[in-house]
């Protein structure tokens, strides 16, 4: 089985993105952090900054988020943000 994180980005208007990523780098209130496969369950408040996903099979996607939350558990990452824009 591929060792990927299932990522979903949600905004109040609906789903922004859903897909598999090997690495998630987000900006929390106190700085950037990265998530890999098998990360411990975590809830983080996001600050203003980049959200970068390294996608399964190469390539990456970058968003700019302003506030929001990130939750990870059982290799599922959910990012909630009411201000998020793809870069």
């Amino acid at each position: 089985m591929a060792r990927t994180l299932h990522c979903e980005i949600l905004s109040p208007e609906g789903s922004v993105f859903a897909g598999e990523a090997t690495l998630v780098v987000a900006t929390a209130i106190d700085g950037e952090f990265g998530l890999l496969y098998n990360h411990a369950p975590l809830i983080a408040a996001l600050g203003k900054g980049r959200l970068r996903l390294e996608l399964e099979g190469g390539g990456e996607k970058v968003w700019r988020a302003e506030g929001g939350f990130l939750e990870v558990s059982q290799n599922k990452v959910t990012i909630l943000s009411d201000k998020i824009e793809e870069k």
């Binding site: 109040p12 209130i29 106190d30 975590l42 809830i43 939350f69 009411d82």
Partner: peptide, 26 residues
């Protein structure tokens, strides 16, 4: 909770409560 709260429960709530209120009005 089995979750690690980052940076702290207080900081999360500080953002979460307004987010919930905004969303209810939305």
């Amino acid at each position: 909770s089995e979750y690690i709260l980052e940076p702290s429960a207080e900081e999360i709530l500080e953002n979460l409560i307004p987010a919930i209120i905004n969303n209810r009005i939305f």
